[in-house]
């Protein structure tokens, strides 16, 4: 089987049978987006995000043989990653670290020559990080590239209607926060 043509499910099954390269192929597909999502969830802390994704892979490796195919491998990987991020975030020390990173002004992903734009970006990041973790996960998952709302709903195990209403509420809260920060 050519691993590049194989489906996610076939790769996971191959890995469960002992083919480590299949896991490598799976990681090639999903590790970058998973790491990006983890970074977004964990306040752009890359090392923490790496820890989360590595822990997610550990869980995938241990659970590969038990995967029953009730959901797609893709949504399964996202769900595991979000859970790992939540677990890491729940640690008080980590949380304090994240807050410290935010207040110290962790570097945004893109360096722009416009200082006002950079300031706005920092404000948006701070407002997103100030949201509750579930709301943050929902927003970031919905705006995550390559993931439809239906897939996000499957990852979060909620109906798509519920997802949309929660997304609306979370965005409203985010805008309110940004507006309240903008008005002195």
């Amino acid at each position: 089987m050519n691993s590049t043509d194989a489906s996610d499910e076939q790769l996971l099954e191959a890995f469960a049978r002992g083919d480590d390269n299949a896991l490598g192929e799976l990681a090639l597909r999903y590790e970058p987006p998973l790491l990006g999502l983890a970074c977004g969830l964990l306040g752009r802390d890359r090392s923490l995000a790496c820890d989360a994704v590595q822990e997610a892979w550990v869980r995938v490796i241990r659970g590969a043989a038990k995967f029953r195919g009730e959901s797609t491998v893709k949504t399964w990987l996202y769900r595991i990653t979000i859970n790992c991020c939540k677990d890491l975030f729940s640690g008080r020390t980590r949380r304090a670290q994240i807050e410290a990173n935010e207040t110290n002004g962790s570097q945004p992903s893109a360096v722009t020559p416009d200082p006002d734009a950079d300031q706005r970006r920092r404000r948006i990041h701070a407002a997103v990080q100030a949201l509750p973790l579930d709301a943050r996960a929902l927003i970031l998952l919905c705006y995550h590239n390559g993931l439809s709302h239906a897939a996000a709903a499957e990852v979060l195990r909620i109906p798509i209607g519920t997802l949309k209403s929660r997304l609306h509420a979370a965005l409203t809260e985010l805008r309110n926060r940004l507006e309240s920060e903008a008005t002195p």
Binding site: G24, A27, P32, L35, G36, C39, L140
Partner: peptide
């Protein structure tokens, strides 16, 4: 969208 942008190179966490 930018906040969760996939990272180009990963440290082969798997």
């Amino acid at each position: 969208t930018e906040m969760t942008r996939p990272l180009g190179e990963t440290p082969r966490l798997w």
